[in-house]
Design a protein around this nucleic acid. Sequence first.
DNA 1: ATGAAAGCGCTAACAC
DNA 2: GTGTTAGCGCTTTCAT
Lengths: 334, 334
Amino acid sequence: MSKPPSLQHVAKAAGLSPATVSRYLNGSLVLPKETAARIDAAIAALNYRPNPHARSLSRGKSDTIGLVIPDIANPFFARLAAAVEKYADAAGIALMLCSTLNRPERELDYVERLRRNYVDGLLFTTNHQDENGALAAAINASANIVVMDEDVDDAVVPKVFSDNIQGGALAARHLVEMGHRSLAHIGGPADIMSARERAQGFSEALAGSGAEIAAALYGAYTAEHGQKAMETLLDSDRGVTAVFAGSDEILYGMMQVLRDRSIRVGEEMSVITFDDAGRLELFDPPITAIRQSTDEIGRLGVETLMRRMSGDADLGTQRVPVELIIRASVKRLA
Amino acid sequence: MSKPPSLQHVAKAAGLSPATVSRYLNGSLVLPKETAARIDAAIAALNYRPNPHARSLSRGKSDTIGLVIPDIANPFFARLAAAVEKYADAAGIALMLCSTLNRPERELDYVERLRRNYVDGLLFTTNHQDENGALAAAINASANIVVMDEDVDDAVVPKVFSDNIQGGALAARHLVEMGHRSLAHIGGPADIMSARERAQGFSEALAGSGAEIAAALYGAYTAEHGQKAMETLLDSDRGVTAVFAGSDEILYGMMQVLRDRSIRVGEEMSVITFDDAGRLELFDPPITAIRQSTDEIGRLGVETLMRRMSGDADLGTQRVPVELIIRASVKRLA
DNA sequence: ATGAAAGCGCTAACAC
DNA sequence: GTGTTAGCGCTTTCAT
């Protein structure tokens, strides 16, 4: 258990200076075969491994980025994290995971951590409104942040979002096409971008279609909200034949109610949701959904952050297309 | 954009030495109110933030641990990761996320990374057998690793597992109690500990119960395997009335088949699964399951690793109890 | 092509 | 209580 060998030791063993070995290891130098071999031999003999902390300190960067998300246990964010890690790893950079549980002080804390150079950059994701602007302020005060999935108003950094408007429209058109005329929307928090946009796309696409939104219930992206809203909807019978859920979680809550009341989905009530991060094909019937591409959001997020870190200009906000996945929860009406 | 202030600057501004400020900041010193105030003022004025890399280099540790898992997008591992992060964070240590996708070279790579002091310790999780013993060798060559969830044979490090045997037994007893006599088990890979133990607990608990295992089909912890196995089972009609799925994923595959063949779960075929990481209460009917406590596994994992890092003896392998969650997928037979 | 030397910013003996 | 002095292990001018 003696101290691990350092570059110094390797250099000495190879009869060279630390500088040369360092350059060789970093590829900033092409060495004669013989010299290179000597170094390799020394490294192998000593079982040398570079110390990343020393490297970070010296270079002023750590080749590590942070991913801050509300909750890794949420399938949507878990998928997003998987994508982010995949692309980060491919680029040779490590991933620090930071769950905030949507607590503002934790979000600020992580942004702060970036400022301390803990990580070279941050992929930031939130799920609620920035009440007092503190988050936007913190973000704007830091370099190398990109916001993903949900907007932080007033933050002027690169952003990567799904095309929520398109998604809402896709849902609306599908419902109309299937013959539905009296629709409901159970959406997320009315004060955050994603929920607003999904609702907007949904209602705009309905214009002139003959269909109308009989009820629009906003709340949280939770099963609880889905449940309560569905109950309200059912209790105040408005002849709705189909409902558009703002997220998988909301859908889950809705499904509970529907099952409890023995209302057959895809028969007595049609349903379409947004996200498609869960295993919606396993429901009975399988649930039709607007699918977000977590892979593409993650890919673009990492790419954008890396460009940002290497000095590229702010790329503004980029939109990732969504996709309609038709399954069997929307009934074709006469 | 000038260089950020260092401890030196703060010290100078406060009229003290860097050492004193450092001690103060680390709490290894109680300063007179007046002096402390001066430091605080200087820090605030300069907007000073300590550089963690320098700190890590100097202290030889980084207060960061790594979590290596097969796939963060898998709900079970996502939950486990959430728990790990929660407890790590509570202990003031950061979490590096490392997904291996079950590729052996990546697993080795991460263990290697630990050796390089990238992180102070590693929480290691795998999902397949250690073919050639390379993984065990790498693990044994490193300090500060604890293995969670699935065993790595021959690795002699602290381990934290669910009580799979108990789980299998719980499933068996429940089935028997509900009047089932002809059972099947669709399990994970026969060559890994968790699958073996679940099967073992299941069959042992059946001894003398009058019930028997008409079929035991091992494969992978995947929906695909669940599907194929269920088809085989159904095609070779053996009068089985209930099946015990080795994991949620396996269950998912089974459910597809059951639905495709219009076999009503909880009526014509009873089902119980292991994990309960998905949203099993949303199925129709809700699925009865043996629930693993990802929270407790994560908690114990972090705690054990921290004790290990502070020099405690190897704590051997610890078992976390599982729990039977009765829902409605097991029919009560006459 | 290679080396010497000066940091990177912090911590930790060891003094006083 | 506080300061001095060495490092921690690597990178990087600047020489040669």
